[in-house]
Amino acid sequence: MSGTENTRSGRRPGNSGTREAILDAARVRFAEVGFDQASIRSIATAASVDPALVHHYFGTKKELFTAALDFPIDPEVVLSQIAAAPLENLGETLVRAVVTVWDSPVGIPAIATFRTLLTTRDPALARTLLLDVILKGVRLRLDEAVGDGAKRSVLAASQLTGLLVTRKMIRIEPLASMPIDELVAAVGPTLQRYFTGELPPGT
Results as ranks from 00 to 15, higher is better:
9 S>A: 15
10 G>T: 04
14 G>P: 10
14 G>Y: 08
18 T>P: 03
18 T>C: 14
19 R>M: 08
20 E>N: 13
21 A>S: 15
22 I>T: 05
23 L>G: 08
24 D>M: 04
26 A>Y: 07
28 V>K: 13
28 V>N: 06
29 R>P: 02
29 R>S: 15
30 F>C: 07
32 E>K: 13
34 G>W: 04
34 G>E: 06
34 G>V: 07
36 D>M: 06
37 Q>H: 13
37 Q>E: 15
38 A>L: 11
38 A>R: 08
43 I>R: 06
45 T>I: 06
50 D>W: 01
50 D>P: 00
51 P>H: 08
54 V>G: 03
54 V>H: 02
55 H>I: 06
56 H>E: 09
58 F>I: 07
59 G>V: 05
61 K>D: 04
61 K>L: 08
61 K>H: 10
63 E>D: 15
64 L>A: 06
65 F>G: 00
65 F>M: 10
65 F>R: 03
66 T>L: 03
67 A>I: 07
72 P>M: 01
73 I>C: 00
73 I>M: 01
77 V>S: 01
78 V>F: 00
78 V>Q: 01
80 S>H: 05
82 I>A: 09
82 I>V: 15
82 I>H: 02
82 I>D: 02
83 A>N: 10
85 A>D: 06
88 E>K: 13
90 L>C: 06
91 G>L: 06
92 E>Q: 14
95 V>Y: 02
97 A>C: 08
98 V>A: 13
99 V>Q: 00
100 T>H: 05
101 V>A: 05
102 W>D: 01
102 W>H: 14
103 D>L: 05
104 S>T: 02
104 S>Y: 02
105 P>N: 10
108 I>H: 12
108 I>C: 02
108 I>L: 13
109 P>F: 03
110 A>P: 07
111 I>K: 03
112 A>K: 09
112 A>G: 13
114 F>K: 01
115 R>M: 07
116 T>D: 14
116 T>R: 14
119 T>G: 12
121 R>V: 02
123 P>W: 04
123 P>T: 09
124 A>E: 14
124 A>F: 07
125 L>F: 05
125 L>C: 05
127 R>Q: 11
127 R>W: 06
127 R>M: 09
129 L>Q: 03
134 I>V: 15
136 K>N: 12
137 G>P: 05
138 V>W: 01
141 R>I: 05
143 D>T: 05
143 D>L: 04
143 D>F: 04
144 E>S: 14
144 E>N: 10
146 V>A: 06
147 G>E: 11
148 D>A: 14
149 G>V: 07
150 A>T: 12
151 K>C: 08
152 R>D: 03
153 S>H: 03
154 V>Y: 09
154 V>R: 14
155 L>N: 11
156 A>C: 15
156 A>H: 02
157 A>F: 06
160 L>C: 10
162 G>C: 11
164 L>V: 06
165 V>W: 11
169 M>S: 05
170 I>S: 08
171 R>A: 13
172 I>M: 13
175 L>P: 02
177 S>M: 02
178 M>S: 10
178 M>N: 02
178 M>W: 04
178 M>P: 01
179 P>E: 12
179 P>I: 10
180 I>N: 10
182 E>M: 10
182 E>R: 13
185 A>T: 12
185 A>G: 07
186 A>F: 08
187 V>D: 00
188 G>V: 09
190 T>P: 01
190 T>R: 13
191 L>P: 04
193 R>T: 12
198 E>S: 11
199 L>P: 09
202 G>C: 12
202 G>V: 11
202 G>D: 12
